[in-house]
Amino acid sequence: MSQTPQTTPPLLELRKVSKSFGAVQALKDVDFVAPAGTVTALVGDNGAGKSTLIKCIGGIHPFDHGQILFEGKEVAIHSPKDAAHLGIEIVYQDLALCDNLDSVQNMFLGREIRNWLRLLDETPMEIAAGQTLRDLNVTTLKSLRMPVASLSGGQRQSVAVAKAVLWKSKLAILDEPTAALGVAQTAQVLALVRRLAESGLGVILISHNLNDVFAVADRISVLHLGRMAADVATADVDSQEVVELITTGRYRRQPAHAVREET
């Protein structure tokens, strides 16, 4: 395959990855690239294979075939731990937070800081959590010490995203982060997504909402029935064309440089 020569390899690159569940071929020979410092949107119809792709990257189940390259090096990801070790942090739409714990406790869950007595050292945890949220301009959070159950959906999502930043992850994957949110909170989370990319992280954003995608994404990858239908720069397409790609897997006005040839 011919690619424009790059000086630095992309943060994450998938080459011809496939995944099937029994007779169901969820992903077939998918190529996918997520560079650092950019928001890559992953779109596609229900059942196109988006969540499957994410789960394979996150180590929940492995690909059947294909290569994963992280920072140019081929890697194997067999478990969520492997993914976390590489610096891949996934923000799930649900199940991301413990409602009964506060923001600090959630952000440090499983990676708590302890003092010389091996007791929890709340002070540095609270300082780091507060600093991270401030860096991300999350200012609506009144108290870091309230159970997250009492936060709004957008605030909870912000805490989940901030966790990815706090742990200096290199790639943040957000699975429909705005699906349950209102207008103002959606804007808040999208702004946060943008700031993540600007701070140098690679961001993969899964969304069914093309307004959101066009608002923040630099590139759009379209999955159609388990195949990568297109990988385009947001500036090169309009939402009409993306809708067509999502539903049919092709579009009429074919810019040769943007669409991978279908066999």
């Binding site: 969520p80 199940l95 413990c98 009964n100 714990l101 406790q105 499983g110």
Partner: peptide, 28 residues
């Protein structure tokens, strides 16, 4: 009280009780 409120173990007990799946994904 120290065990429940000031140790990693105690924190994880609350986490599992609050949301076992989230706790598992956090590596607990």
């Amino acid at each position: 009280t120290v065990l429940a409120g000031r140790t990693k173990f105690g924190r994880h007990v609350y986490a599992v009780g609050g949301n076992a799946e989230a706790a598992r994904r956090a590596g607990i």
